[in-house]
Design a protein around this nucleic acid. Sequence first.
DNA 1: AAATCTTACGGGTGACGTAACGATC
DNA 2: GATCGTTACGTCACCCGTAAGATTT
Lengths: 103, 103
Amino acid sequence: MRVELRHLRYFVAVAEELHFGRAAQRLHIVQPALSRQIGALEREINVTLLDRSKRSVTLTEAGQAFYDEARAILQRVDRATQAAQMVSIGQVGALDVGYRLRL
Amino acid sequence: MRVELRHLRYFVAVAEELHFGRAAQRLHIVQPALSRQIGALEREINVTLLDRSKRSVTLTEAGQAFYDEARAILQRVDRATQAAQMVSIGQVGALDVGYRLRL
DNA sequence: AAATCTTACGGGTGACGTAACGATC
DNA sequence: GATCGTTACGTCACCCGTAAGATTT
């Protein structure tokens, strides 16, 4: 298995909600599906990201570090997509806006 | 559909090889599978990333921009994983190395 | 016992490989 | 006609939802 953006999207939701049920709702999936993917992620990178012991979910130190990175990565993917779209629109053959786009 | 790291990994391979056959070999998949995923990516973000017209594959302007970003994103995922592993190892309960890790 | 996360199990989507097709030189 | 990318088609993996289980309070 390899890490996919789905894993990051799911983990970010859990990290922000600190609750599998609410995170699952937010992702429009059910709790077991979310639990499995988080577990698969942790196994894949061989790191425990969440502490489920104390009746409440909390981030481990590694989980906090990974959360910050995951969020940044997801944002960067969005920005990369938008940038490509901008360049694409700005190209000859497409809608020529008549000026250079600042990226 | 949503963009996944698989799409970025595949696209980076094609962007570097500028040849679907060689890129597919490098990815240990067959050419049609690669072609489909690249097509799916282009459709998803609504951007033509590659020019297949002139007998040789070349990057469009948008493709070049997206390639740079994709590469950086993939590297960042690797670094995020490694960082989480470092923190994890450095935590109490795991193998305690006896000093603070520099991240 | 109620709430919450995990494990078991069956079904459907989609990623892949093989084969056929299209296009370019 | 050889090379290379795309489309068609069947198969299999895996992601998901439902149901059952484990655990904590």
